[in-house]
Amino acid sequence: MTLALDLLSWLALLGGLFFLAVGGIGLLRLPDFYTRLHAAGITDTLGAGLILLGLCFQGGWTQITIKLILILVFLWFTSPTATHALARAALADPENSPPMFHKKD
């Protein structure tokens, strides 16, 4: 039982680390500000979600798990709002709005 939980926990943690790393790489690789928002979205949703899920398996049915789930709920409620505020502020900036990348075809 403990072994199975440990295995699940490893899987979730490694998956979360993979998505966090992909989000970080995307933050560096993508060409303009607006596309980088999507990379940050990966970090905030599945990266954080899987890491906290992996910790939940270690916490078991205790108050720890409740707190972890609450952290996840807060993250998933606040991150789209922050992303939206960023995108909107960047678009509405009258002086130095970041340029938007368009595919040349």
């Binding site: 980088r36 940050a40 960047a90 970041p98």
Partner: peptide, 8 residues
């Protein structure tokens, strides 16, 4: 841009 920094 400053928005990139805030996002990061």
């Amino acid at each position: 841009s400053v928005y990139d920094r805030i996002l990061a």
